Amino acid sequence: MYLLVPDNTRIETNRIIVEGDVIVGNHSSVQYCISGDTVIMGEGVAVSGDVVAFSDARIDMWSKIGSGVKVGRNAYLGEFVTIDGKLIVEGDLDVGKEVKIKGGFEAKGWIIVRNPVPVIMFLLLYIREMMRLGKGEEVEKALEELFDDSEEGEKLDGKEPAEKVLIIPADTRISPEAIEVGGKAVIGSNCYLIGNLRVQSVETGKNLILKGSISSEGNITIGENSTVYGNLISKGQVHIGRNSRVFGGVRADAVFLHEKARVDGTIKAPSGVSFLREASGEMPPLAEVNALGKVLMVEAEEPLKGETEENLIKAADLVEIDSLIKTGPKVKIGFVPGMEKKSARTRSLARTRHFAGPRSQRKRQEAGEHQS
């Protein structure tokens, strides 16, 4: 179970805009308007705003739409569906019993009143029958046609159909305050999102703009050229890509930060902070931390081995980015190796012993010669 957000998706103040299709799992709650090509909703889905489907729309039983529904082609409504606004269908309307449309409806095609097969059951029965007959290729072709953007079956900008589908898993809660998902979240490139993310783990593409924080049980990966106006909190690892910026703090077990990325807040990582550096033709210098907490650059003895695009540079024992000296309960404040703090009386006695020692030894030697 995961949330899949395709490229160029925008979750704005009151609307979700998707260039491809939208699939909403059972018993999910979406406090936005939804706009996409084909819109498919499972059982018990609640949408507070309008639903706009440029192609087909299939809304399963017991679902509720808080405003109007506009469909560019055909619409399928299951039993006990409630639409508080007006329903406009450019094609055929297949509607079940006990459907309530408070704002009235307009349909330019055929209107059929019956009990449509539930969306999920329809797909499961169809796939099971095709697999029983050994027609796996027909199943794959049917799924591709289901999420095709055009009647002619043209390709979607050279991408697979699945890359243009917004998938909202079952029992997901999406509101302006937070996006709560019980599993993983995968966010494409060039997306604009408003709201906090609460997920098991999250991975984003390039050029993301997120106006909110991310809270995750697992890893958080922020792609290149992205901007996050909030905090990143993870019990696992946090990866921040090149030219990305976080206007907030980062708290995780370990942090991997590109050298060209920027974090305006405090970074806390018990397992350390690692810096990612781009590969170059020359041997890159290594970053080391001395006892004073200063970063010293030294030449590497051998070329670093690793990926062709990035090399990993790790500053050992880093806990906070703004506090490079790792202190413990037994470490004195301000301690520097070889320079213990001594009182003035202790230093004076040490100088006296240093000069008085050789003088006393010479006096004892002279007294012994006179006695002999």
Rank of each mutant, 00 (worst) to 15 (best):
M1C: 15
I11R: 06
T13Q: 10
N14C: 03
V24D: 14
H27D: 11
Y32P: 07
G36A: 15
A46W: 12
G49H: 03
D50H: 11
V51C: 06
F54L: 12
I59P: 05
I59G: 04
G72Y: 14
L77H: 10
I83T: 14
I88N: 04
L93K: 13
V95M: 14
G96N: 07
E98Q: 10
V117I: 10
L123K: 04
L123T: 01
L125I: 01
I127K: 15
R128P: 02
E129W: 03
R132L: 01
V139S: 07
K141D: 14
A142G: 03
L146Y: 06
L146K: 02
F147T: 04
E160T: 05
K164D: 04
A170F: 11
A170C: 06
S175A: 09
G195H: 01
T204E: 09
K206R: 09
L208N: 02
L208A: 02
K211Y: 10
I214V: 15
S226C: 15
Y229P: 02
L232P: 01
K235V: 03
G241H: 11
D253F: 02
V255R: 07
V255S: 09
A261F: 07
R262L: 12
I267S: 07
K268C: 04
S271H: 14
A279M: 12
A279L: 13
A291Q: 08
E299P: 11
P303T: 08
G306Q: 05
E310H: 00
D322T: 08
M339F: 13
K342P: 01
S343E: 00
R345K: 12
T352P: 04
R353V: 15
A356D: 05
R359H: 00
Q361L: 14
